[in-house]
Design a protein around this nucleic acid. Sequence first.
DNA 1: TATATTAATCGTACATTTGCGATGAACTTA
DNA 2: TAAGTTCATCGCAAATGTACGATTAATATA
Lengths: 110, 110
Amino acid sequence: MKRTKENIVYQVETEEIAKFAKALGHPTRIKILNHLDDASCCYTGDLLEVLPLAQSTISQHLKELKDAGLIQGTVDPPKIKYCINQENWIKAKALFNEFFSKNMNEISCK
Amino acid sequence: MKRTKENIVYQVETEEIAKFAKALGHPTRIKILNHLDDASCCYTGDLLEVLPLAQSTISQHLKELKDAGLIQGTVDPPKIKYCINQENWIKAKALFNEFFSKNMNEISCK
DNA sequence: TATATTAATCGTACATTTGCGATGAACTTA
DNA sequence: TAAGTTCATCGCAAATGTACGATTAATATA
């Protein structure tokens, strides 16, 4: 990557939807988000009971979701409480919604 | 990957949305799909004019979109015509739609 | 202060992704 | 048949992702 064609510039929207999609691109992270829906909030430890993965691995997935802006964590010592980041969630929802309706071209492929 | 926790089983829906999301997780592929919307169809060569990437690289991205089921190619010798795979597109749209509405939990994070 | 709990981070191993140029396969046209 | 066009695939290099155990940091409690 980034060898000769150095830093292609994409539209902001393009970058954003790709960033969200990338964060959603692993079943473990989908499961975490689904769990967050059911529970509305959760601690890292809760996920250890749901997912057969090491604590450090789950922590890493949480970090990716957090970096993408899809979740947020608040300290509740000695735990950390995670929940959906509503603002960005709405943003992502809108982006995907627009993306998928745009490409609904019925006349396609003459 | 796949070191000790060998083959976690996820729900089919979870696997599917992650698969689609992964394919959408790169700005080049988002741009290809947006281009397919504008043009309704396109050849690999068309994308060479739109994206500053090597032909082999674009071909690889097309393969990933095809493997995920989001696009399909039909031979039109000596070219190959790509367009959105309507069936799977609708499927993906529905999956994301459901996913994003599920997690709209306003009461979140007590 | 010492111990326990919780979760992030570090270091490591291996797989996958992304990019390139070169080559090969399929088909047209001269 | 030979040459040209189009695109896939191969082989390689570098970056990134996924998983683990071990360690560290922060806080609460004995």
